[in-house]
């Protein structure tokens, strides 16, 4: 849905993710079997450490499966560790065990090369993200760009109509607290939550407005976080409703560093926009954001990591 990485890179990342998942599960389930295959089943230490290594594999599996090549770095770190340990182990193995361990080491070295390549290319991909042809207020230095899309089972006029009344945006944009519209909707004042319980505010103006097709906007001078966005509505083929495509660009305090820090706190901006659109679809199709005991706010990036138990809360 959104990323600066190329499709091929994302595919490689997914493949590595699948490998991690498989290996992780095998190590957790049957450490003895894995140790035997690798020729190190004679060591008690290996047997106790393998499930931990398995857990490590599972930890990088998820983001990689989601097509995030950047996470290959954590695999590279793991590979270095494994190769070091295996190299040491090779020195005192003989016979059949030696042959098995050698095969396993060669396999790990091969995978390590793929990991390293993927991780390196992910860095390059990040540095050369596509420049938005969005209506910028001025040069946003190293803007964060995110995009997402969804299909809503309603006609374009209705979907456009809901979005065009900006004061309704907070019902589905989790981090936008309030939007006040001025001048018949051409201008608006936004208040949004920022990481660390702060709020940021800005004025925005509508740049393009084609009823039923497109809305784009940009912040005006003096914004806390200069930003720009567009949403496009196109009829989905064969009466499938409306395809909604959102693109946002904003300068975040600290630029890329800010993005990395935000990510650590589960504030990954692309997941946020995706969640916003999920809620938008829910509101239009079912009348409301859908909540559960595990996810009381409705679809929400942070809740993907810290679920509440699926039981009523006092």
């Amino acid at each position: 849905m959104s990323s600066t990485a190329s499709p091929r890179l994302r595919r490689t990342a997914r493949l590595l993710g699948a490998a991690s998942a498989g290996l992780g599960v095998a190590m957790l389930r049957d450490p003895v079997g894995v140790a035997r295959t690798a020729g190190v089943d004679d060591s008690d230490t290996v047997l106790s450490v393998l499930p931990l290594v398995g857990a490590r594999e599972l930890a990088h599996a998820l983001p990689l499966l989601a097509g995030r090549p950047g996470w290959a770095w954590t695999r590279v770190a793991g590979d270095v560790m494994d190769l070091a340990v295996m190299g040491a182990a090779l020195a005192d193995r003989r016979g059949e065990r030696y042959r098995r361990l050698r095969t396993a080491t060669i396999a790990v070295a091969g995978l390590a090369a793929v990991d390293l390549g993927t991780a390196l290319r992910s860095r390059r991909a990040r540095r050369t993200g596509p420049a938005a042809d969005l209506p910028l207020t001025g040069p946003l230095t190293s803007p964060i760009e995110v995009s997402a899309s969804t299909t809503v089972n309603k006609p374009p006029a209705e979907v456009y109509g809901y979005w065009r009344d900006f004061s309704r945006l907070p019902t589905f944009m989790a981090h936008v607290r309030q939007v006040a519209t001025l001048e018949g909707g051409r201008r608006s004042h936004w208040v949004a939550e920022a990481p660390g319980r702060r709020t940021v505010e800005w004025d925005a103006e509508v740049v393009e407005d084609e009823p039923g097709r497109l809305i784009s906007w940009r912040s005006t001078a003096g914004a806390d976080v200069p930003n720009t966005g567009s949403v496009e509505f196109t009829p989905a083929p064969g009466d499938r409703g409306t395809e909604v495509r959102v693109r946002l660009a904003y300068a975040q305090p600290g630029g890329r560093l800010g993005k990395a820090v935000a990510k650590l706190f589960g504030e990954a901006p692309d997941q946020q926009v995706r969640d916003d659109l999920t809620r938008f679809k829910q509101v239009l199709e079912t009348g409301q954001v859908v909540r559960s005991e595990g996810t009381p706010e409705g679809p929400f990036a942070k809740r993907l990591l810290t679920q509440r138990p699926a039981a009523p809360h006092a």
Binding site: L62, Q271, V290, E293, G294, T295, Q307, R308, A310
Partner: peptide, 28 residues
């Protein structure tokens, strides 16, 4: 409401199911 988790495992998400993990909604 946790379609985002299921998408990571399966590409796209199935429906929510009562008492069937958080990937299926975290619904008691």
């Amino acid at each position: 409401p946790n379609a985002g988790i299921a998408e990571k495992f399966m590409g796209h998400s199935p429906c929510g199911i009562f008492g069937y993990s958080h990937m299926m909604g975290g619904i008691p």
